[in-house]
Design a protein around this nucleic acid. Sequence first.
DNA 1: GCCGTTCTGGACGAGATAGTCAAGAATGGG
DNA 2: CCCATTCTTGACTATCTCGTCCAGAACGGC
Lengths: 196, 196
Amino acid sequence: MARPRSFDEAAVLETARDRFWATGYAGTKVDDIAAATGLGKGSLYGAFGDKHALFLRVFDHYCTEAAEGTRRQLEGPDATAYRRLRDHVHAIAESVVADQARRGCLIAKSTAECAEHDEAVAARSRQLFRDLQGHLTACIAGAQRAGDIAADADPAHLAGLVLAVLRGLEALGKGGVEPAGIRAIADTALAVLPKP
Amino acid sequence: MARPRSFDEAAVLETARDRFWATGYAGTKVDDIAAATGLGKGSLYGAFGDKHALFLRVFDHYCTEAAEGTRRQLEGPDATAYRRLRDHVHAIAESVVADQARRGCLIAKSTAECAEHDEAVAARSRQLFRDLQGHLTACIAGAQRAGDIAADADPAHLAGLVLAVLRGLEALGKGGVEPAGIRAIADTALAVLPKP
DNA sequence: GCCGTTCTGGACGAGATAGTCAAGAATGGG
DNA sequence: CCCATTCTTGACTATCTCGTCCAGAACGGC
């Protein structure tokens, strides 16, 4: 009936994400994205609207995946909750260390650049942080029930602390702190969590 | 002998800093800075070189002031070291909370946007983080000697942890976490530091 | 005063940049 | 096989943006 799309929307969004990730919102030209995806600008505008709408689409999807990935890593039975928490912290630290190109985290980059002026970005990141802290809180509460973390500590407070450390690791990694420093911080954060 | 400058260089740098702070490197137009400072572009280029040189000048100065301010807050006799550390952490948390406009920290914004592609920015931020951790380490070591923090903990590791939390507070504040959440994280971080 | 020197203000040019548009291409139904 | 419909391509416009340049202004030494 009508001419079908010749591109895979998900692949295009991924490529666009990489461009925004590499050069930020203001620094990324629509022509860059067109060139990287191989699409003409007409197709891009037709399928996603303008630059801002495309960015929000990319950002929202990235946030959703980040929350989902964290949930999967942290969810599970109480008996292994502490182990999951520890593995998650180490996984973040290793991902920071492994990021040779220092591209950092798209969320950190986008909120730093846009949250102040772009309410849509601010709202999405707020929601994400709520979700992340929620997953951490649930996992920590599980570890408390299993007797791996002191039961008298407020799990939400500990979760906030862990979240701040994880975000801090990202920031320090971007700032050039060496692998040993990053790993030491992750280990120290786990070590100071109150034991029963 | 020659016509003197009609502007105050420090004031112009401050105004330029505010522009970069508000809209980032790529998002700030040289014409914006010219308009904000009241200078013609000829004067700007004559005095500071191009946009990138001006940005580095601003960024370097901001980093220097940040390190200097931290040093002043943390330096002092062992007897009050823990109190200084506590006050510093609270001061950062309060500054994040007080930042209604959510402009965040210029260092976080600049490293997020530029460190990946701009070696000068990366190098300056690396140095800054080294300095900050150094000041924190010295203060924590003092608190250990005074018996306010467990002596068997590695002060550099604890300093790394505190630095990560402080950077994380910035990131979370930018991301819209509410004042109560920010303050709770600061308090929790202080609470988990090992007591003798 | 006059002059050489540096600073100022803004016009200017080359190239970039977001978004539009029209001509043509691909598709399935009739 | 033709048509209506949607998609594609890339030329095009209007506006920005960086950086340069130059005519004139402000200064102190002479």
